[in-house]
Design a binder for these strands. Structure first.
Lengths: 245, 245
DNA sequence: TCAAAAGTGTTCTTGTTACACCCATGC
DNA sequence: GCATGGGTGTAACAAGAACACTTTTGA
């Protein structure tokens, strides 16, 4: 189920679960910023979360993975459902109508896409460097945005990102989830940066290091030479990556 | 939107969001047990979570509240969404078919009710004593069951309860949620019982009391006389009841 | 040799745990 | 009085915060 054009999707309504969609908040980490992958809608200044629809016989988790793979090129991603959004007015007909008209795609008043949609939200943690952002059929471009400087967003997507962030912060206390935002090996400073950015607070360097190491999940690999005029930091590896549950 | 017969509901498919349902895990506390409200399906030995469908223009949270009100007689209930379940095979045609046939209700092969359903799960915390369990159109009875001794359950409802319990335990650490399972006034021992039952572990009486009081949310009301041959415990009240967010 | 960043050790504070003790009540 | 359950005080311990100190690197 891969669609190459908007028209293709518009005509495939009967192959999806009706009035149900998936939206993915894809988090990456770069330059001390928590980034979110957003798609700029065609002929619009609005941005949207990467989303999609669910095949008639497709598992909703699988659908989320498929959408993620299509937008990032990655499989094996840390993925977690964080909430389902179902206010009757969360979507509006006008936005899609404008897009369809601007693209010259004919449609009737009962087009499936113009109906009310309930959306299931997933968030993903990915290695920024590995992602190849790829726009979907609704959008002209797909790119990273700083989570603290988001552009105008479609529908309730801003609220979705907020909720996803809340859940991510909650998870950070309970599970060792931050690693998924980093490459396979990383320094303790980089890991601390991830935590500080997500939690939006400075952490004590020395205590952070001890706490992380005390969990016994980090493997010290080798020293990383190069960089600046200072002691070379160790590189660490986290074994059990991409392990939701 | 209140339906009095199964036939009534079966013929009202077009008034609901298609292939989407809501299931509620309603928790109560009684006799040192965490209870779950379950409905016994008509002409079956299976039990189901109280559930329902979503009106075409109804908010999903409002739908959950409506379902809760219909089954318990209560409004103003602590309610929280805990997950959406969407495996393609989670529901099966046979169960509903059997019920419809046993009830002598005619149906076609394309009946909306026999399609695949994605279900949004909510859990609720209620005061056991205030609930008047009321069966829905699919069931002959509606009653409390000990969460540690559940009868055979419909579809993936057992997994839903498990997930709801996980989320409830998680919440118990972060928010003061246990009060919603008790009457307006309660003793510290009763509150401790709630925590011990949900977390499934004994807690230290003296420290539990200090911890709860240190949060500054409990108002001491009066002493509770009667009962046994021992010191009368204070009664406490929790002001900001039923405050999700 | 010096600045900058990484890693380790040590103290101080805080919060948790465990348990001893006292209080009220009905038999 | 005394057994029973409720409430408070306190010492012992563990976890966290703050900070001093050493190590390593490139300029």
């Amino acid at each position: 189920m891969l669609f190459t054009s908007l028209k293709d999707v518009v005509n495939n309504g009967p192959n999806f679960l009706p009035q149900l969609s998936i939206d993915c908040v894809i988090f990456g980490y770069h330059a001390n910023q928590l980034k979110v992958l957003l798609c700029q809608l065609l002929h619009s200044d609005q941005y949207a979360l990467p989303g999609g629809f669910i095949g008639l016989q497709e598992d909703i988790g699988d659908a989320a993975k498929r959408i993620l793979a299509e937008r990032t090129g990655l499989t094996q991603i840390y993925l977690e459902q964080f909430g389902t959004f179902g206010q009757p007015q969360r979507t509006d007909r006008q936005t899609h109508q404008r897009t369809l008209e601007a693209c010259g795609i004919p449609y009737g008043p009962d087009l499936w896409l113009l109906k009310r949609f309930v959306s299931i939200g997933y968030y993903a943690l990915v290695d920024y460097q590995k992602v190849v952002p790829t726009p979907d059929v609704f959008s002209g471009s797909c790119a990273w945005h700083d989570s603290h400087a988001l552009p105008p967003l479609l529908f309730d997507h801003a609220a979705m990102i907020e909720k996803a962030l809340d859940m991510l912060r909650l998870m950070l206390d309970h599970k060792l989830v931050g690693f998924n935002l980093l490459p396979d090996t990383f320094t303790m400073g980089e890991l601390q940066g991830v935590y500080e950015t997500i939690l939006n607070q400075k952490l004590q360097r020395t205590n952070f290091q001890r706490k992380m190491l005390s969990l016994g999940i980090l493997e010290r690999v080798e020293k990383k030479y190069g960089g600046g005029s200072h002691k070379a930091p160790y590189l660490y590896r986290f074994d059990t990556k991409t392990t939701p549950s």
